[in-house]
């Protein structure tokens, strides 16, 4: 069951839109904030709360890059692999993450701490390569700074 807090947050967001359906993406993000990802059960419950078919909500959930329909680790690493980061060596950062955490794009560490995903251009191109760990942006990455960043994550 979606707990009271989640339901309250979702209802608050729905007030910004003239139709409940418009708040469905925000609702999925709220579920994720609490549960890391959107399970089949949660999807059905959000659909019921908003009043749209679960199949339609599934169509929305699977369209957007940042809605996770599979379990993810405690920290999601969003590594920008778009062109400015490619030119400045994001491939080395990806290799560095693989070496250190033994995960590549789409994979989660065995201890469930990290999931690595590719990210469309983060709009931080003057400080490429860039990545986000959770909600925190890290920039001007080097294999050395990567070590420090990953060590600093709880």
């Amino acid at each position: 069951m979606l707990n009271d807090q989640v339901q309250k947050e979702i209802r608050g967001e729905l007030e910004h839109y003239p139709t409940p359906r418009a708040g469905c993406i925000e609702a999925l993000k709220i579920v994720q904030n609490h549960e890391r990802w959107v399970s089949d059960t949660a999807l059905q419950e959000v659909a019921d709360l908003i009043g749209i078919p679960a199949a339609e909500l599934e169509g929305v959930a699977t369209f957007y890059n940042l809605i996770y329909r599979q379990p993810v680790g405690k920290h999601v690493i969003l590594l920008c692999d778009s062109v400015s980061c490619w030119l400045t060596g994001c491939g080395k950062i990806r290799a560095g993450i693989k070496q250190r955490l033994n995960i590549d794009f789409g994979q989660t560490t065995a201890d469930d701490r990290f999931t690595l995903l590719p990210m469309a251009c983060l709009g931080n191109c003057d400080h490429a390569p860039s990545m986000m760990v959770g909600e925190v942006l890290h920039q001007d990455l080097t294999p050395e700074s990567l070590d420090q960043i990953l060590e600093g994550v709880d």
């Binding site: 910004h16 993000k29 369209f63 957007y64 890059n65 809605i67 990210m119 469309a120």
Partner: peptide
């Protein structure tokens, strides 16, 4: 005035896809 944060997809920058996304649909 409201802020709507997206859930990521390049196509949302296309103005009519953006409108579909704001309506809670596939962009």
């Amino acid at each position: 005035l409201h802020v709507h944060t997206s859930a990521g997809r390049y196509i949302c920058g296309e103005e009519t896809a953006l409108l579909n996304s704001l309506e809670g649909k596939r962009a």
